[in-house]
């Protein structure tokens, strides 16, 4: 695990993400957008029916997040914005990457083989932001550029286009070679669990 640090700015190029490897740490500036379950469906439906999206997602980072947001005079304030569990989006993410051209996905808990394969083919990376760190994420969000489908989807499910500054640490767990860090970690932890269980079984009971 390298632990090398990068400071990147969106829009990300193929070159920007191709040099990243599993274990690298990224601090991201520029534009990112949020999408959870319903927003993935919505964006894919819009593209499918040939409608133009209200913003250009190409080269941006997609953030799996449903923020707590408060309306201010003439705008919005993001109160807390930690990541949500990414695996819920696994069934649609490969298609989403292909159709939108996002170069980075930010979430928590990792994603599966279909997403890793799409990232290898279309050159994108998956990064983890600290689960639960809603205040730290909110601090990195400098401005709400816009919010889309708010009426239809509600605050947590709507698509928020956000300007961020040094958002991170984001740890790369799927890179453009398709390597998927959490897959190996999971096997390793389950192997150790069996060892620990048999060790405990040999000990005297309380």
């Amino acid at each position: 695990m390298s632990g090398r640090e990068y400071r990147l700015r969106t829009p990300l190029s193929v070159g920007d993400v191709e040099r990243l490897r599993v274990g690298d740490i990224v601090y991201l500036s520029g534009l990112i957008f949020t999408a959870r379950d319903e927003a993935h469906k919505k964006i894919l439906e819009e593209i499918e029916s040939g409608r133009e999206l209200p913003f250009n997602p190409e080269g941006l980072a997609l953030y799996h997040c449903g923020p707590v947001a408060r309306r201010l005079d003439g705008g919005w304030e993001i109160i807390a914005a930690g990541p949500t569990t990414s695996m819920r989006m696994e069934s649609v993410e490969a298609e989403f990457i292909e159709k939108t051209g996002v170069r980075m996905i930010i979430g928590k808990g990792g994603m599966g083989e279909r997403t890793a394969d799409a990232m290898r083919r279309h050159k994108a990376v998956y990064t983890v932001f600290t689960g639960g760190a809603g205040a730290l994420a909110a601090e990195a969000i400098k401005r709400v550029i816009d919010v889309y489908w708010l009426e239809e989807l509600g605050i947590p499910e709507a698509v928020w286009l956000l300007e961020v500054e040094d958002f991170g640490p984001l740890i790369v767990t799927i890179d453009t070679t398709g390597r998927n860090y959490y897959e190996g970690r999971r096997r390793e932890v389950l192997r150790r669990a069996e060892e620990v269980i048999s060790e405990l079984a040999s000990k005297k009971l309380p």
Binding site: V68, G132, G134, A135, L136
Partner: peptide, 11 residues
């Protein structure tokens, strides 16, 4: 940050 800003620790 949650402590200084008086904001929720997690969303």
């Amino acid at each position: 940050l949650a402590c200084k800003r008086g904001r929720p620790i997690c969303q």
